[in-house]
Deep mutational scan, measured.
Amino acid sequence: MTEYKLVVVGAGGVGKSALTIQLIQNHFVDEYDPTIEDSYRKQVVIDGETCLLDILDTAGQEEYSAMRDQYMRTGEGFLCVFAINNTKSFEDIHHYREQIKRVKDSEDVPMVLVGNKCDLPSRTVDTKQAQDLARSYGIPFIETSAKTRQGVDDAFYTLVREIRKHKEKMSKDGKKKKKKSKTKCVIM
């Protein structure tokens, strides 16, 4: 069974824990209790493949930012979460993405942009803004509501699919490099 290491990042209060708990335990946590770091595991079937999701729910508070490099190193894919009623959390996505790329030393890291709290009427981040940002990053965008469960499975499952595509691409690139290195030079 394939294991996928997913990391949920975003500013404090955007609903990272609520999304994760909704996926794992099928219930909505409405009281806000700032996370330092929590880890969850769940076995699911995605596109006919049974897999184990190892999900790291991270601290959004700035005082825990020193811990970010460590979990970013171990993560295979990242859910970059903002709240649709919090423009600052949307603007912060850029910083999370840049930090992930720096730590992973790669421009090509599996990510999904997630606009959470889409059940709320007080939207300050337009869907088109988020779609445009995701398009500019070359990553999928999904709106979710941890409260109603809308888009929750889709967000995590899409990230797994992005990781699969990335692994497939990397193995193809690896095979191309191996083929090239088999060419021999004969000096007579």
Rank of each mutant, 00 (worst) to 15 (best):
T2I: 09
Y4R: 12
L6I: 14
V9Q: 06
V9C: 04
G10R: 00
A11Y: 06
A11G: 08
G12M: 12
V14H: 15
V14Q: 13
G15Y: 01
K16C: 03
T20Q: 02
I21M: 05
Q25H: 07
Q25G: 15
Q25R: 05
N26A: 12
N26L: 03
F28N: 00
D30H: 14
D30Q: 09
D30G: 08
E31K: 02
Y32R: 00
D33E: 06
T35M: 00
I36E: 00
E37Q: 00
S39K: 03
K42H: 12
K42Y: 07
K42S: 09
Q43G: 11
V44M: 15
G48R: 09
E49H: 12
T50P: 13
C51T: 07
L52K: 05
L52Y: 12
L53A: 08
L53T: 05
D54W: 02
T58C: 07
G60N: 01
G60E: 01
E63R: 05
S65W: 05
A66C: 12
Y71R: 02
R73K: 09
G75S: 10
G75Y: 09
F78L: 06
L79A: 06
K88A: 10
R97V: 15
E98R: 14
Q99H: 09
K104W: 14
D108N: 05
V109C: 08
M111L: 07
L113G: 02
L113I: 15
L113S: 02
V114G: 01
V114S: 01
K117N: 14
K117F: 14
D119F: 13
D119A: 15
D119G: 12
S122E: 09
S122R: 05
Q129E: 11
A130K: 07
D132A: 05
A134G: 12
E143D: 10
T148P: 06
Q150W: 04
G151T: 12
V152A: 10
A155E: 05
F156C: 05
Y157P: 09
L159T: 07
H166W: 08
E168I: 12
K175A: 12
K176V: 13
K176R: 05
K177I: 12
K177G: 10
K178Y: 10
S181T: 14
K182W: 03
T183Q: 12
K184S: 13
I187E: 12
